[in-house]
C-alpha cells in the first residue's frame, strides 16, 4: 500500500521540483539548438547515417525506428534460439515483467 503511495508521490514530487526550476529559467535568453553531425570525421555506414541526419531528418527518423525494431526482433529470435540450446528448463520459471 505504501509502495503505491510512494509511486504516486513520485510523479507529484517530480513535477513539484521541476516547476520552480522551469519558471526561474524562463527569464533567461533562449536560443535554438541546432546540431550538425560532423560527417568529415566518419566513413562508411556511419557517414551515410550522419549525412542522412543532416540532410533528411524525417528519413533518418523512419530509419531509426525500422532499424530498432528489426534489431530488436533479430536479437530476440537469436537469443531465444541460443537459450533453447543450453539445455536449461526455461519454461517453468515465473514470468517476470517490466
Amino acid at each position: 500500500m505504501r509502495g503505491i503511495f510512494n509511486r504516486c508521490r513520485g510523479v507529484l514530487a517530480a513535477l513539484w521540483v521541476m516547476l520552480p526550476a522551469v519558471a526561474q529559467a524562463s527569464g533567461e535568453a533562449a536560443g535554438n539548438i541546432v546540431v550538425v553531425a560532423d560527417t568529415r570525421r566518419v566513413t562508411g555506414v556511419m557517414h551515410y547515417f550522419a549525412d542522412l541526419y543532416n540532410s533528411d531528418i524525417l528519413m533518418f527518423a523512419i530509419w531509426t525506428v525500422v532499424l530498432t525494431v528489426a534489431m530488436g526482433c533479430t536479437l530476440g529470435f537469436l537469443m531465444d534460439f541460443i537459450m533453447s540450446r543450453t539445455g536449461l528448463d526455461l519454461k517453468s520459471r515465473k514470468i517476470v515483467e517490466h
Binding site: 510512494n6 509511486r7 508521490r9 513520485g10 514530487a13 517530480a14 521540483v17 521541476m18 526550476a21 522551469v22 529559467a25 524562463s26 533567461e28 535568453a29 533562449a30 536560443g31 535554438n32 539548438i33
Partner: peptide, 19 residues
C-alpha cells in the same frame, strides 16, 4: 533551449531514484 536541461533533469532523477 534555455540551457537548463542538465541540472533540471538530474535533480528530477535524484527525486525519482530516491522514491
Amino acid at each position: 533551449r534555455i540551457g537548463r536541461i542538465g541540472p533540471v533533469v538530474r535533480w528530477v532523477y535524484v527525486v525519482f531514484l530516491l522514491l
